[in-house]
Amino acid sequence: MHTPLRTCIGCRATAAQSDLIRIAKVDGEPPRLTFDPAKNHPGRGAWLHHTQECLALAIKKNAFSRAFRTRVQPNELVITA
């Protein structure tokens, strides 16, 4: 059976989709990012290890802007569950 692989936007390591969390962009001002535990939210998504280190790296590298192909400033991020 094939296991889907995804790349963490923080550490850039490839891992099984089941080992990463998906973050989806919700339209609005400011951009709102939401955790997508069911992995079925419409639109673009970014994959991230569930660690503080990977989140910090993603913010430092401006990875959210690249992943969502739009400008996302760290001070504008509102991550909801």
Rank of each mutant, 00 (worst) to 15 (best):
P74G: 13
F35A: 08
D36N: 06
P37Q: 04
H50L: 06
G28D: 10
N75R: 14
A13E: 15
I9Q: 00
R69C: 07
A15W: 07
T14D: 15
A16R: 14
A63M: 09
W47G: 05
P37G: 02
T3S: 01
T80G: 14
R12V: 00
P74S: 10
C54D: 02
D36S: 09
R66A: 12
R22T: 14
K61E: 13
G28V: 08
L33T: 03
R22Y: 14
D27K: 11
I9M: 02
C11E: 07
R6P: 06
N62R: 13
W47Y: 12
F64S: 05
T51N: 01
P42S: 08
V72A: 10
T3F: 00
I23S: 11
L20D: 07
A38H: 09
A38L: 03
L33I: 07
A24F: 11
P4M: 01
V26R: 13
R66E: 10
P31C: 09
I9A: 04
A63Q: 04
A63C: 05
P31G: 03
N75Y: 13
V78M: 14
A38Y: 01
G10N: 08
A67W: 01
I59L: 12
A24W: 08
G43Q: 01
P4V: 00
K39R: 15
R69Q: 13
T34D: 02
H49D: 05
L5C: 00
V72L: 14
L5N: 02
Q73C: 10
R69L: 06
A16Y: 08
K60R: 12
L33C: 09
K39I: 00
S65I: 05
N62S: 07
H41I: 00
R44E: 03
G28N: 07
A46N: 06
T70I: 09
L20Y: 08
A24Q: 11
L48E: 02
C8I: 00
C11T: 08
A13Y: 03
K60Q: 11
K61M: 00
L77I: 15
R69A: 11
K39D: 00
E53Y: 03
A81L: 13
T3I: 05
K25Q: 15
R22F: 13
A13M: 11
A56C: 00
G43K: 03
P30S: 11
I21P: 01
